[in-house]
Simulated scan of single mutants.
Amino acid sequence: MRLPRHDQANSQAEPAAANNSHRLPPSAADAYLPGFEENDSLRSDFIRQLTLRQLLGSRTTSIWDEAHPTEPIPRTLVQFWHDPHDVPPDVRSCLDSWGSLRTEGFAFRMFDDESAGAYIAERYSSRHLSAFGRCRHPAMRSDYLRLCFVHAEGGLYVDADDVLMSDGWKYIFRDHTLKVQALAYDISAGGMVPPSELRRTELPIRDRIFYVNNNPIAAPAGHPVLRRALARATDRLLGGEPAPDIQSTTGPGNLTAALAGHARELQMEDAHSDFELLLDWERTAEPQWDLGYRNDARNWRNMDL
Results as ranks from 00 to 15, higher is better:
L24R: 12
Y211C: 11
W300P: 01
Y119Q: 04
W98H: 11
D112F: 06
Y32P: 03
L50D: 00
I63G: 04
D30V: 02
S142M: 08
R199S: 11
G117T: 09
D270W: 08
G191A: 15
Y157M: 00
F132A: 10
I209S: 06
R123S: 14
Q49H: 14
A152D: 13
E38S: 13
S130M: 10
G35T: 09
V163N: 01
H6F: 15
A67Q: 13
R23V: 08
Y32Q: 03
G240T: 01
L237F: 05
P220R: 12
I205M: 10
E202K: 09
H82G: 05
V78T: 01
V163Q: 08
G155A: 10
V193A: 03
P89C: 04
R199T: 14
D86Y: 08
R134F: 05
D90M: 03
G292H: 04
S126K: 13
H85M: 07
G253Y: 01
V163P: 01
L52K: 05
D7M: 09
R136A: 12
L230M: 14
R134A: 00
D96W: 03
E265R: 14
G222C: 07
F132V: 08
D45A: 12
P72E: 00
I205T: 12
D270S: 15
I120C: 12
T249V: 00
I73R: 00
L95W: 04
P287L: 03
R48T: 01
E14A: 12
R200K: 10
R264D: 09
L237G: 02
S27M: 12
A233S: 15
Y185I: 07
D65L: 07
D30F: 08
